[in-house]
């Protein structure tokens, strides 16, 4: 008993990457604790799903299969998760920090009075001693996340309330088949006893979903622009360099907030986590909320006019000067030398 729950998010009939990443992490934690890893799926036409989830280590696959659950709506999802958690009493429940997870996981935690840590970048098992009461706790979930704009790293614990709930962004954890697949035993959720008529009051009138077009996660070379590019016009230089080098374009949050480029390109804690072979940071100062999303790049080149910019501390090559002067030179000398 007191197993680990991972909420499995469905995206157009497929399992979202972040859910598989959470299963991979959940498998590691479950093995450490000696408990079962249980996947919870709400969706429609879920026939073959258990086979896939078992590969990532799921021992149990709880399913609520009905058209009611597609597309996602807050209240029915909240009702089912709360009902199942009260029934099964997991010690840990993990959710993707996606628009869906960030919409309803807080409601679940509020209903269960369990607490929730958002956007964790690491999850570990460890002991805890309450500094005031001296009470000792074994095997808690350490929920580790940057806070205060990324200037501190906080380890959060949840000593007295269950489940210990956390969300994690896509791409932060690795996705891997389990060394030994789980049993993937399917257990239907008796959801009708959890969902009430009042959970159906919000009606979806229209939905326009675009295919994912931009994929900065898969790029082996990423050229990222920051606020230091100065303008949307200058940001085109980032695209030019990426085109010439055969890479993709990324951006810092400040550049996205300033409207230089779209959010799908944002790298960092509140964007995408990337691990390219080469990361070129153009006019990015390198606050930790940005570097948290790219510091596992194999090689980092920074271009910045501030020698003290934090990005230079993690860079392998630091070019000091004006990005708008340097990028065209990089293009020029790349073309000259690569022939």
């Amino acid at each position: 008993m007191n197993n680990i729950f991972v909420y499995i998010e469905m995206e157009g009939g497929k399992v979202a990457d972040v859910s598989l990443e959470l299963l991979t992490k959940g498998r590691e934690l479950a093995t450490k604790l000696g408990v079962k890893l249980e996947a919870v799926v709400l969706g429609h036409k879920l026939a073959d799903i258990a086979t896939e989830l078992a590969k990532y280590g799921a021992d149990t696959v709880w399913t609520a299969d009905d058209e009611l659950f597609v597309p996602f709506r807050t209240l029915p999802h909240t009702a089912v998760l709360c009902g199942l958690i009260e029934q099964e009493k997991p010690q840990i429940a993990l959710f993707g920090a996606t628009p869906v997870g960030r919409d309803f996981a807080p409601r679940v935690s509020s209903a269960l009075h369990s607490g929730l840590t958002a956007d964790c970048t690491q999850l570990e098992i460890g002991d805890h001693k309450d500094p005031k009461t001296g009470k000792e706790y074994k095997d808690l979930l350490y929920q580790i996340r940057p806070a205060f704009g990324g200037n501190i790293i906080a380890t959060i614990v949840n000593p007295d309330h269950r489940p210990q709930m956390a969300t994690v962004r896509e791409g932060v954890m690795r996705k891997e088949y389990a060394a030994k697949p789980g049993a993937g035993e399917v257990k239907p959720i008796d959801w009708k006893k959890f969902v009430k008529d009042t959970d159906l009051v919000v009606k979806i009138i229209d939905r326009q979903i675009e295919e994912r077009k931009i994929d900065i996660k898969g790029a082996s070379i990423l050229v990222a622009g920051g606020y230091g590019m100065g303008s949307k016009e200058n940001f085109k230089l980032v695209h030019e360099l990426a085109d010439v080098l055969g890479g993709e374009v990324g951006a810092s949050r400040a550049a996205v907030d300033a409207g230089f480029t779209e959010h799908a390109r944002q790298v960092g804690q509140t964007g995408v986590t990337v691990r390219p072979k080469l990361y070129i940071a153009c006019g990015i100062s390198g606050q930790i909320q940005h570097t948290a999303g790219m510091d596992q790049s194999s090689m980092v080149i920074s271009i910045n006019n501030d020698p003290e910019a934090p990005i230079n501390k993690i860079a392998d090559y630091a070019i000091l000067g004006d990005v708008n002067e340097i990028i065209p030179k990089m293009i020029k000398y790349y073309k000259q030398n690569s022939k």
Partner: peptide, 11 residues
């Protein structure tokens, strides 16, 4: 508050 800050590390 169910969640407690165990540790803060300045970056």
């Amino acid at each position: 508050s169910p969640t407690k800050v165990k540790k803060i590390e300045n970056v």
